[in-house]
Design a protein around this nucleic acid. Structure first.
Length: 210
DNA sequence: TGCCAGGCCCTCTTTAGGGCCTT
């Protein structure tokens, strides 16, 4: 199973774990061989209070969280699901903070790198109106798998976007497959440097295009 | 009860400022 990734998405009580925000739901989907092969999803009870604005945004209520499994149990299950598989998230810096903060509480540390679908999308779809997940799903004419701002639906749609961006790169540059190493290069390349980045990677010693 | 961040990216830049994106 080459270049497998796990797409991860957290719903939370706020923006910053450094200011007390906690996770309320997490989903992770295993993507390999061009499709979703496995899923993990759970609400999680951290004891934190969800502000009304966030309840309205996500549809996740304080009542739902009170009945959810304990956060430590959920994060342990999530860590086992992830293992050391590379992660992908939309605006990865956000999910990375919460993954690290919630794992810290059970004395675990993230084992895997995290790539950012938003940074890749800014380079693959520079013409998009903006690079919000919902906009990119519409832009790429992907299937909407559920309500936005629920973890599993967002993770599945990010997975769809991840696969479609690889297909788009294949069409643009005549590549049969897009190695994870190339996506890693693309997300770190200048936003207007997509072609140069792919051509440089093509010339690299061990990259066989077709 | 309910405050709040921060890395990335662009440009009227680089000795900076402001918008984007996540909840």
């Amino acid at each position: 199973m080459s270049d497998a990734v796990i797409v991860i998405d957290f719903e939370t009580t706020g923006i910053s774990p450094a200011h007390g925000a906690r996770a309320t739901e997490v989903a992770a989907v295993l993507v390999a061989d061009g499709r979703i092969l496995d899923r993990y999803q759970s609400l999680m009870n951290t004891g934190a209070w969800i502000p009304p604005f966030i309840e309205q945004l996500t549809g996740i209520s304080n009542r739902m969280i009170q009945q959810a499994p304990d956060a430590a149990r959920v994060m342990g299950e999530l860590a086992r699901f992830i293992g050391d598989t590379p992660l992908v998230a939309h605006n990865a810096s956000f999910d990375k903070k919460f993954l690290q903060a919630e794992l810290d509480r059970i004395q675990l540390a993230p084992q895997a790198e995290m790539l950012c679908s938003m940074r890749v999308a800014r380079r693959v779809y520079p013409q998009a109106v903006n690079h919000k997940l919902a906009t990119l799903v519409r832009h790429a004419r992907l299937v909407k798998t559920g309500a936005y701002h629920r973890a599993l639906a967002d993770a599945e749609m990010t997975a769809g976007l991840w696969l479609e961006m690889q297909a788009e790169l294949g069409r643009q540059f005549g590549l049969e497959r897009i190695p994870l190493a190339l996506l890693r290069k693309i997300q770190s390349a200048p936003c207007r440097g997509l072609r140069g980045c792919v051509e440089a990677f093509r010339r690299s010693s061990n990259f066989q295009i077709q």
